[in-house]
């Protein structure tokens, strides 16, 4: 067992240092690259924080949907294959809800400020 601080705490601290102390001193192409770097660290922090729960929910959803047990990767491949072959489509019970849920979980890590994502989170 590794000691504290946790990886997400460390990455977050580095991102904050770069954002608050370094970014104001940098300009031009390097500033652009630094923004990308900070965004990458923020993404890693979100994944370390969120993906445990969302992966577990996704695995549960896939198991229910496909009626078989397997790994997250294996079951996702199974679902992708079944959709590709036409055995499963949007009329299959649970498919649409599952695809939405897993996609929203990806956006929460990748791009929580993406316009479509924010729109979908608004109350209907």
């Amino acid at each position: 067992m590794q000691d504290e601080p946790r990886p997400d705490e460390l990455v977050k601290a580095v991102a904050e240092f770069l954002r608050n102390d370094i970014a104001p001193q940098i300009s031009g192409h390097a500033a652009f690259k630094l923004r990308v770097a900070i965004n990458a660290l923020d993404l890693v922090t979100r994944q370390l924080t969120l993906a445990g729960d969302s992966d577990a929910a996704e695995l549960h959803g896939l198991t229910m949907l496909l009626g078989v047990h397997g790994t997250l990767d294996g079951l996702n491949q199974d679902l992708a294959d079944r959709i590709a072959q036409g055995d499963v489509d949007l009329t299959t019970p649970g498919v649409k809800e599952h695809l939405w849920q897993t996609t929203l979980a990806k956006l929460a890590v990748d791009q929580p400020n993406y316009g479509s994502y924010k729109r979908e989170l608004e109350p209907k």
């Binding site: 990748d110 791009q111 479509s116």
Partner: peptide, 9 residues
């Protein structure tokens, strides 16, 4: 990591 934006779209 922007590929997921196209999935939601």
């Amino acid at each position: 990591r922007r590929s997921s934006e196209t999935e939601i779209d």
